[in-house]
Simulated assay, not measured.
Amino acid sequence: MATIGTFTRSAGGTFTGAVKTLSINAKTTIKPADKASDKAPDYRVFAGSSVEFGAAWKKTSGEGRAYLSVKLDDPSFPAPIYATLVEGEETGSYSLIWSRRNGD
């Protein structure tokens, strides 16, 4: 596991920060989405202000902690990036943790 992003959360529920890997360095916003169905994402992920490159779903861990399951994808990626957005050790901070898996 590796931290590939750091974020803060606004009062409106939007997360603002950056995603940084060897091939990505993007100011990123994770905004609440209008859900069209139960399976639709709870959030949309944007690079800059308008380029959508992912989605996130609300989840709860076995210990009862809330987190976001994030999927980042773009035609330039060899495969989707799966990550988890969790609350950090500092109040109001969130970490995007990358993991190699096949998705949910």
Rank of each mutant, 00 (worst) to 15 (best):
S61G: 15
G92F: 06
A79Q: 11
R44Q: 15
T60H: 03
G92D: 02
A83Y: 04
T6V: 04
D73I: 07
V86D: 01
S23D: 07
K58E: 14
R101I: 05
I97A: 00
W98G: 01
A56P: 12
D34S: 13
E87W: 01
A18F: 03
A18M: 08
T29I: 11
K71L: 13
R9S: 04
G88P: 06
F15L: 03
L85F: 09
D38E: 14
E90N: 13
D34M: 06
F7D: 10
A66I: 10
I30M: 07
T3R: 09
A40R: 11
M1R: 06
L85N: 07
S50K: 15
R100A: 09
W98V: 00
F15M: 07
R9K: 15
D42P: 05
G13H: 01
R100N: 06
T14Q: 07
Y82C: 04
P32F: 02
D74P: 02
S69Q: 12
S69E: 13
S10G: 15
L85Y: 07
S49Y: 07
F7Y: 10
T84M: 13
L96T: 04
K31G: 02
T6K: 04
D34T: 13
P32E: 02
D34F: 08
F53N: 10
W57H: 15
T3F: 04
G17A: 01
E89R: 12
D104V: 11
A55Q: 06
R101K: 08
G88H: 05
